[in-house]
Design a protein around this nucleic acid. Structure first.
Lengths: 368, 368
DNA sequence: GCCTAAGTTGTAATCGATTGCACTAAAATA
DNA sequence: TATTTTAGTGCAATCGATTACAACTTAGGC
């Protein structure tokens, strides 16, 4: 008889009161206020505040003193309008609250913040139409650049070219398309697939399966190809029946595991392109009574936080998203700092990091 | 002999090329361009685009056609400068890549996006000094409002009052301070503590411990008080030795569990104010050989994603962050929509949702 | 045919900061 | 002393959109 609280009720206290109009409201001090107070021109004030060497130090000090006293704050909108640079960048991701993406965002923010940039976040919910919209409104807002991971449904490129046409820089991370003039930061998915598979082989596995995502997406294709290469390089033959395309979910993983287990000969390992699928498979196989890692090894992908918290921690590929974000930010900064006439197109491919945990480790028990 | 790739190497391809200056660059069409083309004044163009009823439909159509043809985009900076409203809001959180916060951000974004607002993200890293800075720069950027969860080290309120002085609205979520004029959206931590504890009691537990966070923080204090109340209401006496203040980490949880286990009589349950602490405790107790939930029940807090993926899924309190974000956004919207002269101060307290899982369920095995 | 009202559109100021050009006064040079 | 520099400021335009007010056109009323 657990008491489950009613999800929809909440308590509200509300107070409304009139403004005592002592509030400065719209009364932010401007350079004109300062100029009036000091009997000098606004131009001089502006130059003084910007440390223009043409201004005498006497005047400069007066201006700074007055600015401080009057609590002057630069209106960045006005400045942005004049300079054409808003010091804002946009980041577009499928969903903000996915660990991978939020970590990248964190990386970008931490790298760009000290340079005076603010970071505007948008979500596409994996819809190309929303993606197009978001790009449009970001451009309308005069961002100085856009960082993005394309949605799964994206199959056109006009909206990206539009960004370039406006002279803003565009940086793809993780999920990218190859467009001239667009930089990108991704991990080496091929290598990741190769490493994970090679690791499974090193554990003595011979019949290694693969759970892939949509092979039309570059990232899944590359992971898949890395897997194939590792098998071939190690003299194992590729069994097409061992390769399943699944959604990235626990249920899909469980189903895929069941499907695998009906094959003959049964596989003895799987390299999953998703941690969720890997988890589902583990749960399902345990139910059937399969011993992991003794009878079956498994590796996931993304190093989702939960992989290391499990009772049976899951081997996974870390995409170093924080680092990916920081590097994407650096690429952007190089671009805006370079002479306007030069477009720098930089393709950065990061090395993935394989985190070996108990789900695939037959030897010593590592507990990462 | 696992091959661990070198973390620091990455491949870069770089191409730099000169702009073919066919790019419009700085050549965004403005209302002036349209006015010139149609031989009418910019004012008319502006009015037409804003559907001002004073404009004849003939002219309006001409303007719209020309706008479309010339690919006109409104310069939102200019508009923001004129109107004083940037249609940007700031969100300040300790870290973006914490599931709880990123989910709130998602909620805010999804609610505000359709109203034309963009969301700017800042992190404090739990430092009050950074918090102050972030608020300052957000105000400089002319955001229309600020959403925030205060950092753990915050002990001053001037920077918050500054926001109000500028006539911008401020909305706290989760971690708040009581400041007149500031709205807030929080969950009922007292009730959450009460519910979780009551649930443990309903499972037959008599000696219930509590892992708390810093009791100077309102949220932990309230959870603690709810815990106490539930005990008292059910005729159980409070044992101060059972109440431990810990950091929110797996290690701290393990240590706390060890500490508990040295007490006599040993507790038979714990209500932890953190999922990480709960997880650490579970891992430690399992090592000692304690059977969960048979011998010991445990409830965490926050409904972190991992809690439901565990082999032994962990009972936890869901703070409905997505919903919290959406409601915070609604509170903000009400505020900006209201006549400028009225300040609405709204305190919303959401009901928490207790998610009962196996870590505390002696009866039927629920697998949420 | 004259006047008024309604309906349209234009003029010009404004939001706040920046900057090329012009100008003044003082200092340096001849 | 006459002239050229140089330092320091001010004027006014500009970024793009909005809007109070003025001005003009046209139709309708008498």
């Amino acid at each position: 008889m657990q008491k489950i609280p009613n999800f929809d009720t909440f308590v509200v206290q509300q107070v409304a009161y009139l403004h005592k109009n002592l509030m400065t409201k719209k009364g932010n001090t401007t350079i004109y206020d300062i100029s009036k107070k000091l009997n000098i021109s606004a131009a001089t004030v502006s130059r003084a505040l910007n440390n223009n060497p043409k201004i005498s130090s006497k005047t400069r000090e007066l201006v700074f003193a007055a600015a401080k006293e009057m609590n002057y704050k630069q209106n960045r909108l006005a400045q942005a309008l004049k300079s054409g640079k808003s010091k804002n960048v946009g980041i577009i991701v499928p969903y903000i609250n996915r660990n991978f993406f939020s970590s990248i965002i964190r990386g970008i923010e931490e790298e760009l913040g000290p340079h005076g940039y603010h970071v505007i976040i948008c979500q596409t919910h994996e819809q190309m139409s929303t993606e197009v919209e978001q790009i449009t409104t970001l451009l309308d807002t005069q961002v100085d650049g856009i960082f993005m991971s394309i949605s799964k449904t994206t199959n056109k490129t006009e909206h990206f070219r539009k960004v370039l046409k406006e002279g803003k820089s565009l940086v793809f991370f993780d999920r990218k398309l190859d467009i001239p003039g667009v930089s990108s930061v991704v991990i080496d998915d091929f290598k990741a697939g190769y490493l994970a598979t090679e690791h499974l082989i090193s554990q003595g596995c011979k019949r290694i399966a693969h759970f892939s995502g949509d092979l039309n997406l570059e990232i899944y294709k590359n992971r898949h190809d890395g897997y194939i290469s590792a098998l071939e390089d190690n003299g194992l033959k590729v069994n097409p029946n061992y390769i399943l395309t699944t959604l990235s979910s626990i249920e899909a993983g469980a189903a895929a595991a069941r499907e695998l287990w009906e094959l003959e000969p049964k596989p003895d390992a799987v390299f999953s392109a998703s941690d969720y699928t890997a988890l589902g498979a583990i749960q399902e196989l345990k139910k059937i009574g399969v011993k992991i890692p003794e009878d079956f090894c498994i590796s996931g992908f993304s190093n989702e936080p939960f992989t290391k918290y499990m009772e049976l921690p899951i081997t996974s590929v870390d995409q170093t998203p924080l680092r990916m974000g920081k590097i994407a930010a650096q690429v952007f900064l190089e671009q805006v700092d370079s002479t306007e006439k030069l477009t720098i197109e930089k393709k950065v491919v990061l090395d993935p990091e394989l985190i070996i945990r108990n789900s695939s480790n037959k030897g010593l028990k590592i507990n990462a």
